[in-house]
Nucleic acid binder design. Structure first.
Lengths: 276, 276
DNA sequence: TCCTTTATAGTCGTTCTGACCATAAAGGAG
DNA sequence: CTCCTTTATGGTCAGAACGACTATAAAGGA
């Protein structure tokens, strides 16, 4: 896994080749301001390569209280000061976008255990006028996890909160578009992957699994048919050994299941109506 | 559609806001070195934002001679001089990644008519060591089109050629991974979208459409069943008015069809065996 | 002790799918 | 001109999957 700079014709000073070999900058994981000397070789003019700032933005979903909720942060600065936005931040010189996404999320929410969080690259937003201040390219991620703790709003975020999807006004920048794209992607992936289990704790009932589908898709599903489909799909879920059952609810106790080893669903579990 | 720089804490000089308005660099379509003054405001320290070079890489597929072919260019410089690579290049300061992708492709292949080409963002590759020279983030695209003209190999590319998928050795950088990801994505999208028609000219036979599926998936399909599925999907294809038929081939002349207006396929046309 | 709620099992008719077989219409070989 | 091969197209048929239901079980609450 190396990488591009395609067939670059841009005159690259010979001294550059040796630069990124030094891993001196890799350690700067918690710094918010990148080490200025880390990736910039002596005598290298970064403007020759049209420098961009690279950020990550995260559309983090969870299912809480039977509703699809999104993690938002309140901006403390212009532009869009006071407006809600998706969490995110700058990619540091020694980070991949994936690494930066997890770091930023941890910083801004104070949630330390992100192990159960499913992170997935959505797409990159690179319109030249995305940010009124400067040229910023943002790698967007869709993330989903089980009912996570209340965010603390640390790091660069003034505040951080779970908000029910659709109950807030326009977000900062192009975050409305990113969020809508993320929602569409998640909904589509539920059809042909076992992604839904990422919304749930390690052990769950089929009723809870169904609620994930219903919440994300916004449609009601027939319970017996849903159950039949899920159980008919090999390795989608497997019963918890010992016949453990969840009680305490209103009705008959439900059997507990764990996520299986399947990555894809065959056949897919299609949404009732058309794909869009 | 604006954009991120999330809740930026990095002190941004006020003078920056006016910067990207200047479209001075947009014209530099054939320039290999971007205008250095275009996006860099006075008094702005780019290192505070960890400048990255941003490139695009394209995995361009077509079906030729019954085989899936990929467009490759030969690198003329180190690193990986003489190695085959995916076409691509630097994003200019006033371009989106999509715009840069089409420009680079036109430059490096000499193919002027890219209108029939379907371009789709794949994902962004941002591992810190992707490029041995410097920090480069690459937005990868999957592209597919009907049998395109022979590439001329202009622009930054020493040579450009169609090569049957799988008939070449290791590509430069992480382009092997990008290409594999693109192939997987295309194969998956054939299942639930009408993307296959992008591989074909405006008018085509069902046999040609089936060959696209067979070529991309690498599996044989039952002809009557394929036909039944395709015709049963509303708006996937529509017959050419007047009952035009393609003759000149070996067997019975085939009816001609055009791409319909459907974007998604319901129900999907699943690959014979599991999804991966 | 009902009543409500949720889980789970099963039925039934329709639709879809995969594996076939059959026929039509072209070009090529002899 | 006559087979033969090739490709297109039209069917059949049994099994699988699906959607809409009905029925029963097991909990808590009134």
């Amino acid at each position: 896994m190396n990488s591009p700079v395609p067939e670059g014709d841009m005159t690259v000073p010979e001294g550059i080749a040796a630069v990124s070999d030094g891993d001196a900058a890799v350690s700067g994981r918690t710094a918010t301001v990148p080490d200025r000397t880390a990736t910039v070789p002596e005598g290298y003019d970064p403007y020759a390569f049209a420098p961009f700032a690279v950020t990550v933005d995260l559309a983090v979903f969870t299912v809480r209280d039977g509703a699809l909720q999104v993690l938002l942060v309140e901006r403390g600065q212009e532009p869009y000061a006071g407006r809600w936005a998706l969490p995110g931040g700058f990619v540091l010189p020694a980070e991949s976008a994936e690494t930066a996404a997890r770091r930023e999320l941890a910083e801004e929410t104070g949630i330390s255990d992100l192990s159960g969080l499913h992170l997935e690259q959505l797409r990159t937003y690179s319109e030249p006028d995305r940010d009124p201040r400067m040229r910023v390219v943002s790698v967007a991620f869709a993330a989903l996890g089980p009912d996570l703790p209340e965010p603390r709003g640390g790091g660069d975020a003034a505040r951080a909160e779970w908000r029910p999807y659709g109950t807030f006004g326009a977000l900062a920048f192009d975050h409305d578009v990113i969020l809508a794209d993320a929602h569409e992607r998640i909904g589509a992936k539920l059809e042909y992957s076992c992604l839904a289990t990422s919304f749930l704790p390690p052990e769950f009932t089929l009723g809870e699994l169904q609620q994930v589908y219903e919440t994300v898709w916004g449609t009601a599903l027939d319970r017996p048919n849903f159950r039949r489909k899920v159980l008919a799909t090999p390795k989608f879920v497997e019963p918890v050994p010992g016949g453990a059952r969840l009680t305490g609810g209103r009705g008959k106790p439900a059997a507990l299941y764990r996520a299986g080893t399947a990555g894809a669903l065959h056949p897919p579990l299609l949404r009732p109506e058309g794909r869009l």
